[in-house]
């Protein structure tokens, strides 16, 4: 899933303090699972903002709605009839949803309500960690199914560097060394000889470096 983290309430207050009517829009997908932008978080944020502005003696109408997704037209369309009632939208979807909303409702200011962080997993409730950077050319077949692009701090394709210590990365913060895991996995598979195959230079044009990316599938396109 796409993992996001809540933005400080103070930051959102700054965005909307001069508005009269604001709609807070949650998303039922990834940000619900990572507890950053689902219905519950929308409720808490909206409640906090209403109380804050009331306490400031400012009357701001703050409404709440949570959509099934914000990255698909059909769900974003659900608010078409009410959008004009608001001067601003705070979207608690990931950056994808915020933008799609902003593109669709071009005359409405859309603010981000979360910081979108990465594609990752729920290690345990309250702990999410990165697994993929969408490099556009998956190499997991050659690295024991463990990704050095997203999980090695230096994205070394022929790691590890000299900074790996007791299974941990030199950057600290309890980040496991991806190459330690790769080597452990190759060992478990009985394929440690694969380690000695040199990984070729990566084609980063499939990644961010190549500019905004697009997947077009003519076979399913309408």
């Amino acid at each position: 899933m796409i993992v996001a983290d809540r933005k400080p309430i103070e930051e959102i207050i700054e965005y909307i303090k001069d508005r009269d009517k604001v709609l807070i829009v949650g998303c039922n997908e990834c940000v619900t699972v990572c507890e950053a932008g689902g219905k519950k978080e929308v409720g808490v944020l909206a409640s906090a903002l209403r109380m804050y502005f009331m306490n400031q003696g400012k009357e701001i109408k703050i409404d709440e709605v949570t959509l099934e997704r914000q990255c698909d037209h059909e769900y974003l369309e659900e608010i078409r009839n009410i959008v004009d009632q608001y001067q601003a939208i705070v979207s608690l979807a990931c950056g994808v949803g915020v933008q799609f909303m902003s593109e669709k409702y071009f005359k409405t200011q859309v603010y981000p309500g979360v910081n979108t962080c990465f594609m990752g997993v729920t290690e345990e409730r309250g702990v999410w960690s990165e697994r993929c950077q969408g490099c556009g050319q998956c190499i997991l077949a050659t690295t024991g199914g463990i990704c050095p692009v997203s999980r090695c701090a230096k994205r070394l394709l022929n790691g590890p560097c000299g900074g790996s210590s007791k299974g941990m990365c030199e950057i600290g913060g309890e980040v496991p060394c991806a190459w330690q895991i790769i080597i452990d996995k190759l060992t478990a598979l009985g394929r440690l000889d694969d380690y000695e195959k040199l990984a070729p230079l990566k084609d980063w044009s499939k990644e961010r470096a190549g500019g905004p990316r697009k997947v077009v599938r003519e076979d399913v396109r309408q």
Binding site: I9, E10, A48, L49, M51, Y52, N55, Q56
Partner: peptide
């Protein structure tokens, strides 16, 4: 934490 932020 939130109540402190909102001034309650």
């Amino acid at each position: 934490r939130i109540l402190n932020i909102v001034g309650i």
